[in-house]
Every structure is written in C-alpha cells, then in structure tokens.
Design a protein around this nucleic acid. Structure first.
Length: 306
DNA sequence: AACCAGGACACAA
DNA sequence: TTGTGTCATGGT
C-alpha cells in the first residue's frame, strides 16, 4: 500500500489521458453529486472534496488537503481503462456508431457501491434533477463534513449504510424521497448488518451478483444493474430504464411496442461483454438529443413566460 | 396546471 | 411469465 511513497504530497495533480470527456461522463446520469463550477466540476469522492477540469490532453485534479496517493481518483475515474479496447467489443451497428460519434470520450466511473446503490434506490420515477436534489439533502443532513478549500461552500460525504440504518423514516421523507424512504432504510439495515455484502459483488458472476442485490427491498432488475455497472465492476450489466426501453424499441425493433421483458432479453445476448458501456452511450446520446443533459432547476431553455 | 419522471411491488390472469 | 394499479414528490 506504499506504492506511491516516492511522490510528494500535493494539492493538485495532472493525469494525462486521451478520449475522456469529463463533462459528458459526470453529467450522464451515473453519478448525482457533481456540480459544474465555471469550467471545472466539483464533487465529493468518499471523504474527499475534489475539483476536476479537463484540458484536451488530460484531467487536472485539485483537492483540499495535500495528498501523495491518488489511486482513489484513478480508480474512480477508471483512468487506466482503454476506451478503444472497450469500444472494439461493441457490435458494429449503425445505432452504436452514431452514439459513439455523438458522445466521444464518454466513460463509465467506478463509484462506491453503497452510494451508488442508495442513490438509485432513490431514483425510481424521479427525474435526474430531482434525484440530485434528494441525494444532496440526504448528504447535508446525514453525511459527514469533508474538508474544502477556503471560499468553497461546506460539503458532506454520502452517509454510510450504518448511519442511514438508524435514521427514522420521517427524517428520510423530509429529504423529499417519499415512498422510497422505507426501501432505503431497510436496505441500509441489510447492508449495515452484513446480510448483504456489497464488497463481494465484484467477485461474483453477473447473475449471482444481481441475485444478491435483488434481495434488497426497493431494488429490482434495473436498479441492481445500475449498481453493478456503475460501482461493482460488472461490465455486462445493462440497466433497462424508460429511456433505454424507448431507444431500443426505436433503434432495434423498428419502433414496435415490444414488451420490456423482450427488450431485456435482447440486451442480454446482443451487446456482448461490454454491454454496460454500450448502454451508457445509447442512454446519453438519446438524452442529449432530447436536450435533457445540462438541465437543472430553473433551466427552461428560454421558454419562461413574461 | 396537468403530466410524468434512469421503478418496485403486490396482485391478477 | 406478462399486464395493471399504487406508491410521494416536484420539475417542466
């Protein structure tokens, strides 16, 4: 664990990397705590505040306290992943070629499993902007303060399963999560007690890992696959949400109203070992075309009435 | 101002 | 196995 002992602690580090679109990646609905501040993105990874900016040839990272070991960030951003190798595993079809052209440099992150899972438990029938709000309130009320540079507003970590397991349902509802509150609380308990071991998911095959997550209340196939893909290192997981359902019907079923089950089964054999990456490209491309990517509260694309 | 949102669940048939 | 109503909340 002392592999980087030769490095001096620093507040800033530059990581050379090609084909990495930070903005697309951080706003593509896989993580919910990133905020754009000027030309940079600010967020919290684990218990650290980070500011990221993306010059053409890499990513510059700034933290609040000097660091020598940056592996946590390399891992989160998946900087050692060869995008070309991933994309070469895609089926060579027109829909994917188009999505690749529309979202060059889109990546998958490797998030904390509990944060990702809990966030997606809160996501059901919620718009992404609302998920961000709910997660934000959850963190500020039950998370722990993290160190930030002078002049930056205080921020908190994502609350642990142990913490959320002992928060009352009413206090959770006060974050605006509605009927999802009992799901989050009960799932937090099962994770906190070790009944479900999130750390083991990466070692299991996809079906076994999914079966584990499906034991959690409020976690169905879609949310399980989100946690598996965005956090648990299962590259073949393929979350089918309303966007992907509509998109796949259009692109692969000639617009026919095929059932969700049929679309799921199609996705299981068609997209291959990197199906999850394919999903993210199709999802982000579709949302981008619909003008839904940069949206936040108060964004109305100039349609506000006088 | 209605409509609907990165679903899950219990309950039909 | 596949289809329907229900569950809170608030942005658009």
């Amino acid at each position: 664990m002392a592999a980087t002992s030769t490095e001096k602690p620093a507040l800033e580090k530059f990581f050379p990397v090609a084909d990495y679109d930070l903005a697309a990646t951080l706003s593509s609905g896989q993580a919910f705590r990133w905020h754009k501040g000027g030309d940079a993105w600010e967020g919290v990874i684990g218990r650290r505040w980070v500011r990221l900016s993306g010059p053409a040839d890499g990513i510059r990272a700034t933290v609040a306290e000097p660091l020598a070991d940056w592996r946590w960030l390399i891992d989160y951003l998946q900087l050692t992943t060869s995008l070309a190798a991933v994309l070469s595993a895609f089926p060579n079809d027109e829909p994917l070629r188009r999505a690749l052209k529309e979202c060059p440099g889109l990546r998958l992150l490797r998030q904390d499993v509990w944060e990702c899972l809990a966030s997606f438990i809160l996501s059901s029938t919620k718009q992404i902007v609302q998920i961000r709000q709910i997660v934000g309130r959850l963190c500020e009320r039950f998370g722990e303060r993290v160190a930030v540079p002078a002049g930056v507003e205080p921020l908190c970590s994502f609350p642990s399963a142990e913490r959320l397991a002992v928060v009352s349902e009413g206090d959770l509802r006060a974050c605006g999560m509605g009927f999802r509150a009992p799901y989050l609380r009960a799932s937090a308990r099962m994770v906190a007690t070790g009944e479900i071991k999130l750390g083991e998911l990466a070692k299991l095959d996809l079906d076994a890992a999914r079966a584990e997550l499906l034991r959690l209340p409020g976690v169905g196939r879609k949310i399980a696959d989100c946690a598996l893909l965005f956090a648990a290192g299962q590259p073949a997981a393929f979350p089918v949400d309303t966007w992907i359902l509509k998109t796949l019907r259009q692109l692969y079923f000639a617009g026919r109203e095929v059932s969700p089950g049929e679309v799921v089964r199609f996705s299981e054999h068609y997209f291959g070992p990197q199906a999850g990456y394919a999903q993210q490209y199709l999802f982000h491309a579709a949302r981008q075309r619909a003008g839904r990517v940069g949206e936040g509260p108060g964004t109305d694309w100039g349609k506000r009435r006088a």
